[in-house]
């Protein structure tokens, strides 16, 4: 479990990010995954496109958006990142705006992410969103996400 594993999901985070609007917020949420080499830079654009194409349905719960695109949009590794914003942004969701926390993920195929998202859902039900919001720095946010991954 604690041994380095090439198949283990890449985990990344950014805290206290300034984003002018939802597009900037989605880009910021993908950037840690780009920086980690887990997705190609174009993944960021595709995540913005998904909101443009399908509406802000990925604002799952008050204040929290799940940013992602498809495996074919440049995903190299299964990955998960959390980003907190200094100022919340509006996505245009009828009930769940404004958003101050974004979780981005990428999956290299149509099924690798299923276990990860299952654990993510369980941890969100157990209060992960507020743990991430309260994380004072990047290292602490990564540690919170690592509890999700360690549970796989």
């Amino acid at each position: 479990m604690s041994e380095p594993d090439d198949d283990a999901p890449v985990v990344a985070a950014a805290t206290g990010v300034n984003a002018a609007d939802w597009r900037a917020a989605v880009r910021a949420a993908c950037q840690p995954l780009v920086d980690a080499g887990a997705v190609e830079p174009r993944y960021t654009d595709r995540c913005v496109d998904m909101v443009e194409e399908h509406g802000p349905y990925m604002v799952l719960t008050p204040g929290l958006a799940l940013a992602h695109a498809r495996p074919t949009d440049g995903v190299r590794r299964l990955c998960l990142a959390a980003t907190t914003l200094t100022e919340p942004v509006m996505f245009g969701h009828p009930d769940n705006d404004p958003v101050d926390l974004l979780i981005a993920f990428g999956s290299p195929d149509d099924s690798s992410h299923i276990g990860l998202l299952q654990k993510l859902a369980e941890h969100l039900l157990a209060g992960l969103a507020d743990t991430l919001r309260d994380a004072p720095d990047r290292a602490r946010a990564i540690r919170a996400l690592e509890t999700v991954v360690a549970d796989l």
Binding site: L66, H68, A69, H113
Partner: peptide
Amino acid sequence: GVGMGSSL
């Protein structure tokens, strides 16, 4: 929309 994350 995408059928991978939110719907899962």
